[in-house]
Amino acid sequence: MLEVEDLVVRYGQATALDGVGLRVERGEMVALVGPNGAGKTTLLNTISGLIPPAAGRYRLEGRLAQVPEGRQLFAGMTVEDNLRLGAWRVRDRDCRRIYDLFPQLGPLRRRLAGTLSGGEQQMVAVGRALMAQPDLLAVDELSLGLAPLVVDALAEHLVRLNRETGMAILLVEQNARLALELCPRAYVLEAGRIAASGSSEELSRTAAVRAAYLGGAADEAAATGIGS
């Protein structure tokens, strides 16, 4: 599905990605976790074709659509226009699928996207990406700035889409707990390199990952599970 090998990306003198390798199989849900500035968004923008890599390569079978960090909607345009523009690369611009998936959006279709709540905006962002009928959906910071309940609902949608349509998902998250719970397999990106990878279960048992991303045991006990 997606195969990234030895990818190097530079911004001027600074190296953002330094030999990153990563795979996502057909129908798989994979998490990419790591701290702020590790290069997660750079990786997504590179495989989305926005940034030319300095070295290495990536191979993509099928179509990729991205739900960008911060949602990046066309704020002054309606929900429906936002969705329809998501289908720029495909013929089918019918938004009904999206309204079926997110019934909340139906009545909001004539509203300007910039006036919606954070959760509704994230639904539009996901919907816009889905309009491209992707084989791989890359979601950048699904949970950022959203209430836990809203995140739960959105995550549930993603898991369902993955199960029902076989669409692969690459979930990029600072919230490692959420990502590791949703995805069976994960990569840890640190300072432009893959620091660890493996099954999410193993990774969450690794002391280093726990200390760095899952924020200690006391915190863990207080947190509620998602999707289980």
Partner: peptide, 17 residues
């Protein structure tokens, strides 16, 4: 609308292709 989208958010416009 695609033209308007480019003006509204060029980054997102590039993302949708």
């Amino acid at each position: 609308k695609a033209l308007t989208a480019c003006s509204s958010n060029p980054y997102a416009a590039r993302l949708v292709g």
